[in-house]
Simulated assay, not measured.
Amino acid sequence: MFRQLRLLCTVAALFALAALSGCSSLLWGPQQAPIVDATVMPVEPASAPVAASAPEPVEAEASEGPGEPKKPKKPVVKPHKVEPPPPVVAPAPPPPPPPPPLIVLRTIERSAAHTLLDSEVQKPDGKVVGRAVDMTADAAGKPREMVVNLQGFLGVGDRKVNFAWGAFHFTPGAKGAPITLTPTAVPSGPNKSNALELQLLDATVERANGAKVGRVVDVLIDGNAQPQAVVLDVSGMVSTDRRTIAANWSALRFVTRDKELHPQIDLSDAQINATPPYTSDKPIRAVSPAPPPAPAASAAPAASAPAASAPTASAPPGASTAVAVSNARAVR
């Protein structure tokens, strides 16, 4: 009996323990596990809040009463951003016109022209009979006579004889005498006409105002017996050194003053200084004054005219195309 009572007490104690454990879990809840190790993670700072865009204004709808027709909604017009006008760029000014040319140069081949002074004169059989020492020209610039110093014996009996210009043939590139006297040539008598003639050698060339340009020291003749240029001694014009230049025959004018012919050419000191010197070992560059510039009003119609209608001037034999020179230092 005592043994059974003891067993019942043990069972009752077990039930009491079980009841107590259930109430404890209900009252206190589940127990958390202990923290063994903790890791600190860095937290990035929150970015600044983005400002919300302002809502677009919308016109409030008018209250509509019952039975009233609905009014159409007005479209919402968004303002457009006005772009500033582009900056106005001023056009670049046109370049200044080039300076007018100072002189015009023409190249004459050495084989196409020969000097007159002291050139040998021969007969058709090749025998040299004398040397040319001068020539005459009329007021139009046309050659009239050639003065030949006919040889004597050992210098004795030399005499100057005038022959008509048409009595000679010129061969500039010949190895022998460049001037040949025709068989029928006869000395010219005294000038019976009233036409004035000018002896070219040693004649003084002037400007229109009377200022001296230079002295004629030679004449260049081509194969057609036409003068192409005169050689002028311009020493003292632009420097004290002896200097000669070649001037185009067409640039000369022959004017009458005091019943005599006077050669003229319009070459200023600057133009003389811009002309290359004449030497026997360099190409012949014959100078002419540059023509005055054409007025602007007359230049426009000339530019609009067709190029084919303009006449083309032919250069003399042995001469190249003329070249305008505007810078004096570039020429020298």
Rank of each mutant, 00 (worst) to 15 (best):
D158G: 08
S193L: 07
Q4D: 06
S250M: 08
I245M: 00
G141D: 03
L105D: 07
P49Q: 15
T182S: 05
D281G: 07
G214S: 06
V88T: 14
I35C: 08
N224W: 06
I272Y: 00
A48S: 07
P94V: 09
G152E: 10
L261C: 01
F168H: 03
A324R: 12
L5S: 05
L198T: 02
M135R: 02
R6L: 09
G22R: 14
P98G: 08
A54D: 12
P79C: 04
V287D: 00
I221P: 03
A46I: 14
V238R: 01
G210M: 14
A46H: 10
I179P: 01
T240N: 09
G176I: 04
V156M: 10
L17H: 07
K160E: 11
V156L: 15
I179D: 00
E59G: 08
A48Y: 04
P317L: 01
P172D: 03
A313C: 06
E145Q: 15
K142N: 06
V255C: 00
A297H: 05
R131N: 09
L252R: 01
F153R: 15
D138I: 07
L200V: 08
T244Y: 02
W249A: 01
R6D: 06
E109H: 07
T256M: 08
P97E: 13
I272Q: 01
P276A: 09
A195V: 05
D138N: 15
V77A: 07
V40W: 05
A294P: 05
P295T: 12
Q226S: 03
D241G: 04
E197T: 07
L5T: 09
L14W: 10
E68G: 06
A303P: 04
I265W: 00
G152T: 08
V121W: 02
P190K: 12
V43K: 04
I272R: 01
P183A: 12
K142D: 05
A46G: 03
W28L: 14
D269V: 01
L105M: 13
A62C: 08
N273T: 08
C23H: 10
P289D: 04
N248G: 04
L154S: 11
V216G: 00
M146Y: 02
L20H: 11
V255T: 02
S298T: 15
G126D: 13
M237I: 14
P45V: 04
Q228G: 04
A46Q: 13
A251H: 02
A38D: 08
L198K: 02
A132S: 08
H169A: 13
V213P: 00
G141T: 03
V50D: 06
G210P: 06
E59M: 12
A139M: 09
S268C: 02
N194Q: 15
P75V: 05
V186E: 09
R3G: 08
S63W: 10
A247R: 02
V287Q: 03
R215N: 09
P49F: 14
A208F: 11
A139K: 12
A139I: 12
P96W: 11
G141S: 01
T10L: 15
A140G: 09
P93D: 15
P66T: 11
I272V: 04
P178D: 09
R329I: 13
D281I: 14
D218K: 01
T39K: 10
M146G: 01
E44R: 11
W28D: 11
